[in-house]
Design a protein around this nucleic acid. Structure first.
Lengths: 216, 216
DNA sequence: CGGTTTGTTGATTTAAATCAAAAAAGGTGG
DNA sequence: CCACCTTTTTTGATTTAAATCAACAAACCG
């Protein structure tokens, strides 16, 4: 972990308080049970938030990309863990400072509510995803990735293992779904970690979801 | 739907604004897409919040019991739907009034954050549940029900269909899991909708979850 | 280049869905 | 209270989607 000078540009009520920290590939940001002293904003890279189940199994609850906030808890301890998927730079914002400010500044309180609310929407959306077939889960995941990078060529920055732990599929099933989607021309698997999506074809699967769950 | 006089006893910063409304068995409270004008608190009965999937399939995201709040949205439209499982009385609190108050009263803003945060914890917990076997899902569901009514004798107020839609299981699988749990003496199926749980035996399954996910 | 990690493909098993039918509970009206 | 009908639940047989087991291939890395 490497610290550097604090952020200066404040486009919103909370970032100004933050300090920049860098993490290496697979480095732990925090673990479930540890005191929740900061909330984080991704500047560059990718974070996985997960819970551990018995037998080394893991559930990847979410991936966070530049601009996303994570690690916010109302309790004093983290309920989940977080790791850097790749080399990542974060903005770490003191939870105590934030709490103090939110007590007087309504804009800050509102901002915290928005972050939590967005997280809830995301959690509900992925919950719906788990009620669908392997191919639909992978397709929806790719669409979500596409939405973030805004290009049809997606870099699957995380390994198959992570995708599987996120979608509740074995790595083999993820791989098979990808090849099936490739064979049906819904995607093109360029070179392993690079996927080009055919939005219209993938969206056939997407249409099985309620409109409200497709956003973000 | 039947309206009555507004609530008088205000034990917290938001209930005082509410008006009491009654709903019959299976009556719709609100549907996805409708304007979100109120948030609700259950006084008596039970509510199911759900999303519809293609082909009449439904995902029951949560059940709400007396004391629970639901229907709170940061957006102006409901993203999910809600129905009364049985005859239910609610407290309906104007979202606009609430928003106005939260702009000046920090206690109200904090209360909204707590409600949303609790909902997020619940959503994450159930998300983890979907990564486990049918028997574990049913067992965990029964433990959650037990926790709410605080007695070992649980009334399964909702039909098997609802439990299945909640746990992503067919009604047959729910039924089979219940009989398996009964045969292994983890529960006693008294008379159809009445279950007595053997906490210690059920908890063997529960122990497969991370500590943080077991609460509530 | 060899060794390690990561991903794909194939064969087999398995948990849960589906299909099908019977049994139990609930309701209605005589 | 009972006969009749509907709804809900249970149980059994079969199918199926995904997991697991096993081997191989491709990328990565010193």
């Amino acid at each position: 972990m490497r610290r550097s000078t604090s952020s200066k540009g404040a486009e919103n009520p909370i970032d100004a308080v933050g300090a920049r920290i860098s993490f290496a590939h697979n480095e732990v940001i925090f673990q479930a049970g540890q005191p929740s002293e900061h909330i984080y904003k991704v500047e560059v890279g990718c974070i996985r938030a997960y819970s551990k189940l018995r037998g080394n199994r893991r559930v990847d609850l979410a991936f966070y990309f530049p601009g996303d906030y994570f690690g916010f808890e109302t309790r004093d301890k983290h309920s989940i863990s977080a790791e850097a998927v790749v080399s990542t730079t974060l903005l770490a914002i003191s939870a105590m400072t934030l709490l103090a400010r939110s007590a007087t500044d309504v804009a800050v309180a509102r901002y915290m509510l928005d972050i939590t609310s967005r997280e809830l929407t995301r959690a509900q959306k992925y919950r719906l995803l788990l009620h669908r077939s392997a191919d639909e889960r992978v397709a929806q995941f790719l669409l979500a990735m596409k939405k973030r990078c805004c290009r049809n060529e997606i870099e699957l920055i995380m390994p198959r293992r992570d995708i599987g732990d996120h979608l509740n599929l074995s790595i083999e099933s993820v791989s098979r779904s990808l090849t099936r989607l490739h064979n049906s021309n819904a995607i093109t698997l360029e070179k392993w970690r690079y996927v080009t999506v055919n939005f219209d074809r993938l969206s056939i699967l997407k249409s099985n979801f309620p409109a409200s769950a497709v956003s973000s």
